[in-house]
Each structure stands twice: as C-alpha cells, then as structure tokens.
Computed example of a mutant assay.
Amino acid sequence: MAACLLCWPNYADAASYSGGVWQTPLVNLRDRFLTKVARTAGLSLEATRFDVDLSRDRTIKVVAIPGHNLSPSARIRVRLFADAARTILRADSGWLDAWPAIFATADLEWEADNWWSGRVLAEDVARLPRSYLYVLPRQAFCRYLSVDLDDQANPAGYIDLARLVVAPGWEPLFNFSYGVGLGWESATLAETSLSGAEHFEERPPSRVVSFRLDYMNRVEATNQALAMTRALDVSGEVYFVFDPANLLLMQQRSFLGRLRQLSALEHVACNINGMAFEIKEVVA
C-alpha cells in the first residue's frame, strides 16, 4: 500500500482550453459546479478531444475528470508536453479505460459477462462514482496537456465532462494512521407522516474520509499540512487519493472534495507533529 495523495491546487481552474467540437464551452471545466458541463457536439475522435495551456510550467502528479457520462467501453489518453507545438513529450498515459477493472475474478460468478476482465458493466455505472483519474508514475514539470477521448458508442450521442483537475500531489512521508474511516454520507431528507409512513427526498450521497497524519516532521507539517489548511480553508478543493498503488480500488476510493473543518497542528513529540483531516466529496 502506498501513502495517500493530497492534490492541490488545481491549475486547470485558471487554464485556457482549445480543440475539439463542443456544444457547451470547454471553459465550463473551470466552473466548480459539476452540473455545468462541457458537452461535445458528436462522438468523433476529432470532436472529443481538447488541449490545455496552464500559462506556465507546473508540477503535475494527477489529471482527473470528476464527473462525466462516459460509457463502460470508453477510453482516455492524457499527454503532457513541454512546448506549445506539442513535440516535446513529458508523459503519456497511453489509451486507458475510462472505467478500469474494479472487480476481482474471485468475487464474480463464472457465468458473469465480466468474469475474465473484471470490467464495469452498463448496469453497474449508475451505482458507481463517475470519475476518471490518472496518477503519473512520477511528477512531471510542464505547461501543455492534450486529452483525447474515444467513446464513439456512447448511447447519449455526446460526451459530458464536469470538471478537470490538474494538480501536484503531496504524498506524506508516513501514511495515515490506523483507524482511517471512509464512508458514504447521506443527504436524503426523511419525514414521517402522522400515520407513521416515511417519505423521502432523495439526494446524492457524498463520500467522506477522516484520517490522521501522526508522524510528520516539523518541516512537512508546516509547509504541507498547515499550509494546505490555510490555502484551502473549508471552501477550497483538494483531490484525495486513498492508495495510488491499488489500481483495482483507486477509482472508488479517490474523489474531489473539500476540508470539512480545519484542525490544529499538534506537537506530539520532539520533531513529530500530527493533524486530523476530514474531507467531504463534492458531488454537484
């Protein structure tokens, strides 16, 4: 198990976009409301691609699309370049599944359509987080990105993308302590009538993770943990990756969120510092 990743700031929020053919503009990827999407005009490979200019060289560890309508057969390719002509390649994900395998063969019935692949089926999509995440093997330093999408069989006839995250990643020297909690928090409203019948107003749930980093030295604690809480407050966004080494579960345990509260930096012992974190997923 690798240490978690806390990814911020999101350089894509101030980037410029070009390329592809879009019904609604690509700049919607900068809007923090996930319901304001960028929508392609068709499904051709020429229409479903875009380029990103971060305005200057940046350190990049993750590229994520939190919110999309990609089908189970969709593929995504992310490339990072050092020059505007896109001839000096810094990183290339290759064509990857937008919905990677999430099931172990031992967990599936022999007759299941995805027994061999462990891939997501169309019937699984509704109950899974619609988020794509690419974690670079090592951080790259560059300014330009190209994102290509291949989903020519999408039944909607177009592709919706809610946000783009391009960010560096803080990987703590020591991972979170035992006792970390990851769960779903319901936002559904429930009321009971005079007869005792219950009525519900269903709303999308959010993932919430709570953990402690207990073994930070004073430099890491001050320049990373304390600086992050100051920069983000409770409104800024951070992309949380539970375990970047576990590809089978990474999509389900990683999400775009915000700090629910700001915790104090605790001096546990000589040059040993700790801090508690609680991150709530952004779902709309």
Results as ranks from 00 to 15, higher is better:
L34Q: 10
A84Q: 13
R130S: 11
L149Q: 01
Q139K: 12
S177A: 15
R32H: 10
P155L: 08
D233Q: 14
E191F: 10
L265K: 05
T48I: 02
L136Q: 02
R212V: 12
L54S: 04
M1V: 09
I272K: 07
A245M: 03
V180D: 00
G20N: 05
D214H: 01
S117T: 15
R163G: 01
Q251M: 12
L249N: 11
R127I: 08
D51Q: 13
W22P: 00
V283G: 00
R203Q: 14
Q23I: 04
L89R: 07
I60E: 01
Y158N: 04
C142V: 04
Q224H: 13
N217A: 09
P205D: 14
R77G: 01
L80W: 08
G183C: 08
D124F: 07
Q252R: 15
E111H: 12
A101I: 06
S146T: 15
H199W: 12
V241W: 07
D83H: 10
T105Y: 02
L182N: 07
L54K: 05
M228T: 06
M250R: 15
L5G: 02
V282F: 05
L173T: 15
Y134R: 05
I159K: 02
R138N: 00
F255Q: 01
S263R: 10
L34P: 00
E237F: 09
A225E: 04
S263D: 15
A64M: 02
V147Q: 06
P137C: 08
A47W: 01
Y158G: 00
I76C: 05
A190T: 14
C7N: 15
G169P: 02
R86P: 00
I76F: 04
C4I: 12
L108E: 03
G20K: 06
R30V: 04
D83G: 03
W95P: 00
L121G: 05
G42H: 04
A15G: 02
Q152G: 07
W22F: 07
P9N: 06
W115E: 01
W95Q: 06
W22A: 02
K61S: 10
Y17I: 06
I88Q: 13
P25T: 08
E202T: 11
L164Q: 06
G274R: 07
L249T: 13
S55Q: 11
V282Y: 03
I159C: 04
R218I: 14
G118Q: 04
D107R: 06
I279G: 01
D92C: 03
T222R: 14
L80Y: 08
